[in-house]
Computed example of a mutant assay.
Amino acid sequence: MSVIETIPESAAAGPIAQLYADDLRALGYVPSHSRAMALNPGAFAAWRALQAAIASSLGLRRYELVTLAAARGIGSAACLLAHGRKALTFMEADELERVARDYRTAGLPADEVAMMDFALKLSTASATMDDADSRSLRDAGFSDREIVDIALAAAARNYFSRALHALAVDVDVPPGLDPRLQDALLAPLGGPAHPAPAGS
């Protein structure tokens, strides 16, 4: 549990109230990570603007798949669950479960597997990356702009997820997320299911 004291919805005002309202409109609730990051509302608003700029260029499906791979590499339960729910807007639950358990064997197109491999490596061994990693994306058909966007999406997830880890922010299970899908999202890549967070 984080030592950070967040501002409850009933006491939120100004930019913080607006950030909370955005979550209520989009998600139906205000996640713990929003409450923590909203303590610096300017930085949090800038983060959201960065997300939107990358996603609008890369496309929502690609952005979310890259985000899931990066979050997997980081080991961010909060981001895996939150973006797993978001991925349901473009993917059926059974396909998402297969992707969560092992995207390499889930029947995804080769270009999507390549970008997820890139995001996973960026999140686990970025210091070892070189031109061969970018070339793998080019060989998969991505343009230079798309390669940059994939790198930005994965790197941005590292920024946010690692801040949540550092602050020990509570992990929320999004309302309505099926327990089987929760297990798949939190399982080690290609491995057995991981227990859901307490309180799920």
Rank of each mutant, 00 (worst) to 15 (best):
A106C: 04
R62A: 11
P15G: 09
P41L: 13
L152N: 11
A114E: 05
A11P: 00
P31R: 04
D172S: 03
L122Y: 03
V66L: 11
A21H: 02
A13E: 13
D144R: 11
A49T: 14
E95C: 10
G141S: 10
A127M: 13
F142T: 08
R85L: 15
R72M: 02
A21P: 03
D102N: 11
L39Y: 04
T6R: 09
F118M: 09
E92G: 14
I7N: 06
M91T: 15
G84N: 04
A198L: 14
C79W: 00
R98T: 06
A82K: 00
R85F: 01
V3D: 15
A55M: 13
P175R: 09
W47M: 14
G59Y: 04
A13L: 10
V99Y: 09
A26G: 07
L137D: 08
P179S: 08
L185Y: 03
L122F: 01
V3A: 13
L68M: 13
L88V: 11
L88Y: 05
A71F: 04
A52R: 15
A12F: 08
D133R: 08
D183W: 00
P192A: 07
G176I: 07
D111T: 13
S34G: 08
A168N: 13
F90E: 12
G73V: 02
L19V: 12
